[in-house]
Amino acid sequence: MAFPIRHLIGILADNQRLRGSVMPLGTGRLTAWAKGLSLPRGGSRVIYTGHMYQMMPSLASMEAGLGLMADTPVTRLMGWGRFFNRFVNLSFFLTWPSGRQQAQYDLRLKKIAQSLRQAGIQFGYLYEKELYTGALVYDLGLDEVFKKHAQRVWAMFQKHGVRSVITVDPHTTEMLREVYPKVVPGFQLEVKSYLEVLAESGWTPPQALTEAVTLHDSCIYARTLQVSAQPRAVLAKGPLVDSPDHAGAATHCCGGPAESLYPHKAETVAAERINQLAARGCDTVAVLCPICLHNLEKAGRARGIRVKDFSEIIG
């Protein structure tokens, strides 16, 4: 076994239980993207980031560390790591996200909000009250921790009178639309991804886009949430959107979900996917999910392929 996954999962579970997120970040870091946008606080319809974009730089930094440790004797110390993590937020010390990366992820969120505004959509933001959905603990099968957390999230929505959310990534969308109604009694919320909202509004990017892109569908958007026509509709008037082999419901995973436990496996899958995307001949690949973005970005660098978030293509 490359990693004592028991301890790793343990740390994630403890973080979620004790600090409300697998990757506990300060509220300043979580809300920095919204600075200068003057988004109204709260409201019945809000943009809901689910912290995924904000978390990526820290996850990346932690994974870089774990990647170095994998298959080394250091992994034996993970049990101690988990023990200390209960008292001291180790991720605070272990992860050193670069400021530049953080700024890039924040800008993507900003661009999403700006595009929505251009489309005439009214929405607020919960700022520091917003909570992580618990997507990772759910996927890892930490049901007890997840269920408790989901109750807290639902209580938060109720407390702030939120009836409708605009999500920005597939994982948060899936959690709120597909999973929460099954595990949280009485849960009722209109959940739409910004891609769906933009496509429904008929909005297209105002500035002339000339660069062709190859679109990488997200597994969850395409297969679970049936979101794959919407981003193409938004770009219909813009640059050529080319789909690779394995597009739509047949999309090929970026490898990202394996990142936190099996970094090396994630790399292999990402490299394979980048090969498929590069085969279309475009230098730019557009992605719809921050995990895809992070994972394919690294693999793309090796092939000279630029991987951009969808928000950067349209905004």
């Binding site: 996954i5 999962i9 759910y138 996927d139 890892l140 099968g141 597994c219 969850i220 297969r223 679970t224 419901a249 047949a250 090929h252 995973c253 490898g255 990202g256 979900p257 394996a258 436990l261 099996y262 496996k265 899958v269």
Partner: peptide, 27 residues
């Protein structure tokens, strides 16, 4: 634990086995 839960198998399963959901249950 290394399964990506990407559901490529699940949506294509001819016997409609909820593969990814089963993997999560096993976790």
């Amino acid at each position: 634990f290394s399964c990506l839960l990407c559901r490529m198998c699940q949506v294509n399963c001819p016997a409609e086995v909820k593969i990814a959901d089963n993997v999560r249950t096993l976790r």
